[in-house]
Design a protein around this nucleic acid. Structure first.
Length: 510
RNA sequence: GCCGCGUUCGUCUAGGGGUCUAGGACGCCGGCCUUUCACGCCGGUAACACGGGUUCAAAUCCCGUACGCGGUACCA
């Protein structure tokens, strides 16, 4: 058995159990987020980025963005742009990236081809990789027979392991298409320490001879990621659990190249509420946005989304649930990342979004609500809008509520809630509401206290309970039965607006 | 199929041999506050997948089973 790779550091959940030499990590912390621009940034990708970012910030390390665009056929033109924009929206500061550069530029794998080819030939020279000339057709056939390109079958194939040397050279000189494959050792066990999962052991015979360099000359993820992580001095590889099964291949590459293996940390996956993978289709059916940009348009605040994502797989070990990004940066640790996958719970996100909103300054909430207000054609006065927000902040779940649920603060209601009318609008309502309007014309000061006193007096005079007036007035003024305290609302709306609305309702609902 | 990882209330989770008659949060259900609706507060509902061990003692350790998820590409 290949001995276990001992490198682990104290920041990990699992301490070394089976390894003989414990090596404290003394190199500086450098963490990369390495998405592939084959689509817009996914919610799961954002969580990986978040954990990478938090770990880097918490440890005083560097957070690096690397674009893994080695699959030319699946490239999406504006994906990289979206990834960068999404990280920016999230509020992450990136230390090195394709845009800003850095000491290990370039940060786009498509621009690092020479590096991969050089290391591929080193691997070949050392006998850890080989040339393969098999046609796609023969590989398809192999798989159809339920076989893999592995130790048990590679000698039946067309590669430099079986072909005479002169034949291989001739093919290469001739420009024949070829791939470079990893020569996986037979009958051994590959073992490594995962920071979150602990010791992982895999029989080498269950691995195939992974393609390292594709016939188009591009490296596969496996080669590129190992070469780049080493060359870029990455200390901790923090990525999704879907990579755990291929990590043994990476371990083999590190050893073959004589490199130290970074600390490996595989994060549990995010699952759809229905149980399966949070795929685009399954998520959309459940009303869950998948791409980060969709959260933005759905009106979720980045702080809330990040808070939610942080808690999905990590916990602070205290009862605190609401965190700002800065607080997460202070609190996060890899030790407290869990091992089991979590289901996405949209309800909790909504709650968190409301929590963050209600903790913001009114002026900040206004900034967040701006796009929705604009979309609704509302161009409010700053001071007035801030006043409104002060009033309704606690009952907002999204910033866009201001333009929707509370649009009546910015325009007279044009419809009245039907159920509300049935329940609250009585035959005497029009006259009562009109009488109140009359009294309001002379009311001074036009504030919460006197507004209430005036209403109570009128109710008494008319020989009815306060509710007989309160509810119709609310309905008349806002068109709905829900909202902030009536008198504060009237005071904010202002005399002219209130009187106008009362009169309009009395007429419309006569 | 094979390989790997996982399994505590519906969901996110705490817990790591005795303090667990299992704690917190979301949701849900009551109540208080409020002649509205929220917020807030108080209370309630609800979980250690199953079977074997080990131990004086197991949610916690070990083995098996089941289930879930991931991987098994010239995709990442």
């Amino acid at each position: 058995m290949l001995e276990c790779v001992p490198l682990l550091d104290p920041s990990c959940r699992h301490k070394v159990k089976c390894c003989f030499s414990f090596q404290m990590l003394s190199t500086p912390v450098r963490v990369r987020f390495a998405p592939s621009p084959t689509g817009y940034l996914h919610i799961g990708g954002l969580r990986t980025a978040l954990y990478c970012y938090l770990f880097a910030r918490r440890t005083g390390g560097r957070f690096i963005l690397r674009i893994e665009d080695t699959d030319q056929s699946r490239l999406v033109e504006d994906a990289e742009e979206d990834i960068v924009a999404s990280l920016k929206w999230a509020g992450f500061s990136v230390d090195e990236s394709p845009e800003q550069g850095g000491p290990h530029a370039p940060y786009r794998q498509s621009q690092r081809g020479a590096l991969y080819r050089a290391h591929a030939s080193t691997l070949i020279d050392r006998g850890h990789a080989y040339y393969a000339f098999d046609s796609p057709e023969s590989i398809r056939l192999l798989r159809e027979h339920g076989q893999a390109y592995d130790a048990a079958h590679r000698m039946q194939m067309q590669n430099s392991l079986v072909l005479p040397r002169h034949n291989v050279e001739a093919r290469l000189a001739n420009g024949d298409a070829y791939t470079v494959r990893l020569h996986v050792p037979e009958d051994t066990t590959i073992c490594f320490e995962d920071c979150i999962k602990g010791t992982v052991k895999i029989p080498s015979n269950s691995l195939n001879d992974q393609v390292l360099v594709k016939s188009d000359g591009m490296p596969t993820y496996h080669l590129a990621n190992v070469v780049d992580d080493h060359l870029m001095g990455i200390s901790h590889v923090i990525r999704g659990d879907e990579w755990l099964p291929s990590t043994p291949k990476h371990v083999l590459l590190y050893r073959a190249l004589g490199w130290q293996i970074p600390v490996m940390a595989h994060l549990p996956l995010i699952l759809s509420p229905s149980g399966g993978k949070l795929s685009k289709r399954s998520a959309q059916r459940l009303g869950i946005p998948v791409d980060v940009r969709d959260y933005r348009t759905a009106g979720y605040e980045p702080e809330a989304l990040l808070n939610f994502l942080a808690l999905l797989g990590w916990n602070p070990g205290t009862d605190k649930e609401v965190f700002s990004l800065a607080e997460l940066e202070e609190t996060f640790s890899l030790q407290r990342v869990g091992t089991s996958p979590g289901l996405f719970d949209l309800e909790k996100l909504k709650w968190l979004n409301g929590q963050h909103l209600s903790r913001m300054q009114p002026s900040e909430v206004l900034q967040r609500a701006r796009p929705a207000l604009e979309a609704a054609g509302i161009a409010p006065d700053e001071a007035y809008a801030t006043e409104v927000i002060r009033l309704v902040k606690n009952r907002m779940h999204r910033a866009s509520d201001l333009a929707e649920l509370f649009s009546y603060f910015f325009a007279d209601p044009i419809t009245y809630d039907a159920a509300g009318i049935r329940k609250r609008w009585k035959p005497d309502s029009p006259s009562l509401v009109l009488r109140y309007a009359d009294r309001l014309a002379r009311l001074a000061p036009f504030d919460e206290t006197s507004l209430e006193a005036e209403l109570r007096t009128l109710a008494k005079t008319a020989g009815v309970g306060g509710g007989r007036l309160i509810h119709p007035v609310r309905l008349a003024v806002s068109g709905t039965t829900a909202g902030p305290g009536l008198f504060a609302m009237l005071a904010t709306l202002g005399r002219d607006s209130v009187i106008r609305r009362l009169q309009a309702a009395a007429q419309a609902l006569a």
